[in-house]
Nucleic acid binder design. Sequence first.
DNA 1: TAGCGTAGTCGAATCGATTCGATTTCGCGC
DNA 2: GCGCGAAATCGAATCGATTCGACTACGCTA
Lengths: 353, 353
Amino acid sequence: MTASDQHTRRPTLADVAKAAGVSVSTASIAFSGSGPVSDATRERVLAAAASLGYDGPDPRARSLRQGRSGVIGVVLEGSLLYAFRDPVTSITLDGVATALGPQGAGLLLLTDSGEGAATIDTAAVDAVILLGCSTRVDHSIEVFGRRDIPVVSVEGPSRPELVEVTLDNRAASVVAARHLQSLGHERVGIATLGTADGQPAGPVTEDTPIAVSVTRERLLGTREIYPDAPAWSSVHNTPEDGRRAALALLDVAASERPTAIVAQADLLAIGVIQAVEELGLVVGVDVSVIGFDGIRIDGFAHDLTTMVQPASAKGHAAGAAVTALLAGDRPDTPIAFTCELHVGSTTGPVPSS
Amino acid sequence: MTASDQHTRRPTLADVAKAAGVSVSTASIAFSGSGPVSDATRERVLAAAASLGYDGPDPRARSLRQGRSGVIGVVLEGSLLYAFRDPVTSITLDGVATALGPQGAGLLLLTDSGEGAATIDTAAVDAVILLGCSTRVDHSIEVFGRRDIPVVSVEGPSRPELVEVTLDNRAASVVAARHLQSLGHERVGIATLGTADGQPAGPVTEDTPIAVSVTRERLLGTREIYPDAPAWSSVHNTPEDGRRAALALLDVAASERPTAIVAQADLLAIGVIQAVEELGLVVGVDVSVIGFDGIRIDGFAHDLTTMVQPASAKGHAAGAAVTALLAGDRPDTPIAFTCELHVGSTTGPVPSS
DNA sequence: TAGCGTAGTCGAATCGATTCGATTTCGCGC
DNA sequence: GCGCGAAATCGAATCGATTCGACTACGCTA
């Protein structure tokens, strides 16, 4: 029987140790490098491993013993597809990966919907990064808290026990609105991001509940300058949704028509511009358009006026915060980032007519 | 001492069992539901767990015992940023997530560079999906093989032990080239994707080594119809790189200038079109442009002629294949997908001059 | 009423490593 | 020549669950 085992059972560290004529503990040290081993012994162990086809310790066993898995969970809002489609999320995620790179941690993608691609509560993660999540994850945060799993929230829910990476969404939106104000615009329309999961597109009124903090903060910022500006919410951050929002906002008598549209994201702004042109109007002349994010859209003809946000730095900060937390340091929180106004060609003085 | 433990040590299943007055095995069954338990017992266990703040079994211990972690590794070529930027990768990944969703598996992002965001060899994954990887991962494939970890390769390296999901890159490129041929084009330029990791952009000659199979196959397809067509390779699949490629390909005497350009990806094609227009030429009249992928680029003015590939279905098939492999079934391999020609407005008859 | 199957529970082995404390070995200074 | 500290190695406990085989009651049939 023992002979036939070899084709089914993978070798373990114990097998390697036996083959090398050392104890399991010594073999472990030979692999991990923690502790003193003579060169001769190490080589004997490695040779035995090679001849048995042993490729190093089982990650599962190692992570049980060490209490660490080397995996960082990244919780995204909604479906993975829309998360990937959103340039800011992609860039932020890349920033996270860059900051985490040296540590050699893997990124485990999770979504905040209970069902779906991954089970947020049962994953073996050392830390969690929430990317723009809604309050839906509150319960999970408590679980992580009990498990002593550090949580970093990027533009997400705010709770005392977690480290926050923030963006000055509200203040930046004020700056954007002031820019329009300085150009003389008085009638302004707002194309917002999604208000809540599962919520359809449509007009945003006083009492529309807004669960997504980014949407809420940016809207509040704009409304500080333009309290009565009509707003239309989208479902996804896509040009198509932006286009529809603009068509809705511009579908009024010419005398009532907004002379400027604030889009809460550049992708929306692209669609807004598309709609404006479809209506035979000139962007930056008949209708000014200002975006948010500052992503570079290749192949896009206009120089979009927008609030440029440091998405990569944001992600990098989140990754660095995770590293610090895992090392036992608690970074000062919140880690705040600010946006900068880029004036392009899509905004201009209010038309005189 | 025991009293002070409570603030530092997390409760284990053993603690819960003791508090509930049952054995550990019974408590385990009460949680997992595998095996018979009386309702009274289960409730007693759950109540004890709740009062102790026990949030369910430790994923690490569970995965060690069960030999499964519930995590699927996804190996991407190059940096995460460029992987996300590539719409086809994003869509494929979403397809994977969709297919894997019901199974509740998490996606662990890995890159095929030894260093970086994740260590491909030491991750606790149940299966691996290679997305367009080069032969650089061959060693890892062997390791996975020895560990009995199923590997699915999407347009990646081909080896007997792994399940392959393929696209008819070569045949589709022939179809694209025939389309140009039928329009009378004789001088054709090719904007290729990257040829190998770390390789700079530049002309592709007979003896340029091409490690990336997608690039190679698509090029071979085009060359079946246009054996002598000059080719220029890019580094990344971006409009900017496509633009540079087109400028290089078109920078010849007017009599030598290509009347059509084959871009190996739609993102490249967008840049090609941009370059053509910068040169004062009309797309589809002076220079025809055909792409590959069939992604919808929002806010893009042209109706791009392209080979539409079923990216989402590809990802879905990869996810389904992983599910099957984990269930013990071996799907027929390769799982082949084909492209379809979409004739838009960016290709037209060869200019008569 | 003896026999038997089953639901419910338990104890112990197991998964495959890491790590702690103990032991042996060896070189070296006094 | 003796003891001492560091290097090298070992054995055993440990991480926290799952699972298998055994055991106890209990209800049912013949």
